[in-house]
Write a protein that binds this DNA or RNA. Sequence first.
DNA 1: CTGTATCCTATATGATACTG
DNA 2: CAGTATCATATAGGATACAG
Lengths: 146, 146
Amino acid sequence: MATTTAAEIRARRKAEYNAFLAVCPSHKMLERISGKWVMLLLSALGSGPDCTGGPRPMRYSELSRLLAGVSQKMLTQTLRALERDGLVTRTVTPTVPVTVSYEITELGLSLHQMMRGLKVWAEAHTDEVAANQAAYDTATGCPLSG
Amino acid sequence: MATTTAAEIRARRKAEYNAFLAVCPSHKMLERISGKWVMLLLSALGSGPDCTGGPRPMRYSELSRLLAGVSQKMLTQTLRALERDGLVTRTVTPTVPVTVSYEITELGLSLHQMMRGLKVWAEAHTDEVAANQAAYDTATGCPLSG
DNA sequence: CTGTATCCTATATGATACTG
DNA sequence: CAGTATCATATAGGATACAG
């Protein structure tokens, strides 16, 4: 019965690993930016509505229109998360009805700049990846390549 | 009832936006690397088991041990996705039992290098983000700060 | 205008058992 | 060793209705 074996040991190693992942800066950052609307919002607030200008404060409704597919729930939720991280600020003006504007912070802007690298890589290698996928698919016989 | 209004227009704009996102290189790339084990695998294959060396081919079981928490399903699934994208290669040696080794490609290595930027940013700003979160939480009264 | 509250679905991930 | 197949679960994301 001295069965402190296999399953238990694996379970412990897994717990330790999850604990490590929970504090790993890179991993946390990846989770932070992985949300469907995170980069879109940072991009809108960091480069303006046309994605070619500079940072500019925007209102809730303006963001809602710009990110055409976003639900109110996700827009609010994502903005709150960004605000909590200090990547954007939220300013309420007590007009009637109330006016709220969101603005990217310096920290948020630095992240936005950082992500440009990813954008460059993505655009440079999209074709190559697509070709690899196509080759893999025909070789594996996935689609109607019969 | 010429009711081509509100809801319908929004639905169309949303469909168009989703179509745009589906082909946007940056967004596709972000989805690609967002998997829980993607960066971990690229890192293992790109920097060796100790994360300090150079690229080295590794076997399925070796990766399984290194990424202590991963399930067989997710390990296989993630490796296949990476292989399909041309980020890693899979080599089968017909010994008995069979031997399979995975190796990062040049393309995968270039992505791995790219992600170093994210790592640097993450490690440089972890404390700042944590401080922002703490400030936000106490200001909002979320935790037991009453 | 700027949200909140509720309910619902899809997808990612995981546990377990089995195989060449 | 290196998986596949199946079942189960958690979470992200979304639709809808309502409110200050």
